[in-house]
Design a protein around this nucleic acid. Sequence first.
DNA 1: TGTATAACATACCGATCAGTAATTTATTTT
DNA 2: AAAATAAATTACTGATCGGTATGTTATACA
Lengths: 193, 193
Amino acid sequence: MARTREFDEQKVLDAAMRLFWEKGYEATSLSDLTAAMGVQRPSIYSAFGDKKELFEAALRKYNQLHAASIRTKLKKFSSVKQAFRSLFEGIITKAGDSRPDIGCFCINTMVELAPHDPKFEVLTREHQLYLASVFQETIERGLESGELRPDIQAEDLAKNLVVSMIGLTVMMKSRPEQLFAEQSIALTLSLLD
Amino acid sequence: MARTREFDEQKVLDAAMRLFWEKGYEATSLSDLTAAMGVQRPSIYSAFGDKKELFEAALRKYNQLHAASIRTKLKKFSSVKQAFRSLFEGIITKAGDSRPDIGCFCINTMVELAPHDPKFEVLTREHQLYLASVFQETIERGLESGELRPDIQAEDLAKNLVVSMIGLTVMMKSRPEQLFAEQSIALTLSLLD
DNA sequence: TGTATAACATACCGATCAGTAATTTATTTT
DNA sequence: AAAATAAATTACTGATCGGTATGTTATACA
């Protein structure tokens, strides 16, 4: 007994996600959002709540997509060493082709909001924890297959790779020379040898 | 033939630096700044220019202080291994004692502004390059003294440590468990062994 | 000591902010 | 088809934004 919604919630949330991802929370205005989402202001509020709630929904969506993307990338290679090398190389090369380098939405939020909002502190921390578990499972796959040295500490290495990935992703935002980026991860990847 | 300035430029710039460091560029208003600096709005504009220029001055000041702090911390130990361990341990423990964890002003700026403003892209990149050179000199000191294995690649290791430091600093903003943080840097520090 | 000058304080500017009240339009159910 | 209801549209709110014009006060120099 009412009018049907004219927009696809997932599609407009996707647009909001991209905008928040690129510009951050504070620098994104409601006017920016209505323009990018193609939806009027009151419709946004009725569908997603206020700006912070919309941001949270966008980040949750990002984290899901990002986690799936990481899992896919790591499964793509039977060699675990090759999988991680490809993952890190992807961060270096993908970043170079277009301005601005928006990096990782979750990392951006860790910097901008996590220290000031417990909700985002938890949300971002849990995503890192999840990524660490995915990394650990991948390393254990390499241990079981015999590709990796049996004395490797899978848990420590997984967490170390998460930290290196965060550091590399952030560093790429300052557009360092390709050689600098390559050198900076060489030893990280050597931990797998 | 004029009135003398009543405030200490370095002191009020220090106050601005702390505020931008904690809250970021967008979330800090001119009203916040006047309150924290104890200086009226027109005086800020006459002394430092507009908001972006004040932010730039604050970041330049931070980078100087931060670089000096890093140099001091690394010189404090005759053992290079111990110096780097102390540096990384400091990032983990210092972060835990107070909310919010404001992390590193330069890293915050790399995330918030570098992708959207060439001036800050350069400013933040150069700071990372400088830190890498300081790290490299420290590693070379350990090579010359014989503390470190002679086959260590000082340049690669220095850059790797910069990336790990960035990653750890950012990760601490989500307030991970102490054990998680300790584990995540264990292998990084093992690169010195 | 008077005058020029710059730092001070107050008050204001138009623009934009996040959020909403009021109205119109469309659709489902009775 | 009529009534009920929710979505869409328009236009608006008070608050705050970054930045500045204006007037006042203090100090250095002639």
